[in-house]
């Protein structure tokens, strides 16, 4: 796939041109500097990335340390004790 890397300043021009050349306009993606730097000068680790995806894509609830769930639990209405009506008189 051919990718055209452009700066944000050139977007308007591309969009304008694409209005008149719909049938042959290239697909234009805005790619930030950091992504380009990473693509050019950082290592690719496909196995590591695959394991990462398997580990972080979630279809089930995540077991958490009890301390995290405790904070949630403590504030549940279930455990609340209410003050009751009282009297302003003696």
């Amino acid at each position: 796939m051919k990718t055209f890397v452009i700066t944000r300043n050139e977007i308007a021009l591309f969009l304008f041109l694409s209005l008149f050349n719909l049938h042959c306009a290239p697909k234009v993606y805005i790619i930030d500097r950091q992504t380009v730097l990473q693509e050019q000068a950082a290592g690719d680790w496909p196995d590591f990335e695959e394991s990462l995806l398997q580990s972080l894509k979630k279809k089930n609830p995540v077991p958490l340390p009890q301390t995290s769930t405790n904070d949630f639990e403590k504030n549940q209405p279930l455990y609340k004790t209410l003050n009751s009506e009282m009297s302003v008189e003696k």
Binding site: L53, L56, K57, K58, S68, F72
Partner: peptide
């Protein structure tokens, strides 16, 4: 909001998705 386990899973997915979406 009352179930941190499901929230943790949803946040993990949203973190990934937003990264892919730049």
């Amino acid at each position: 909001r009352e179930n941190p386990r499901i929230q943790a899973a949803a946040l993990s997915n949203l973190g990934l998705l937003s990264l892919w979406n730049q």
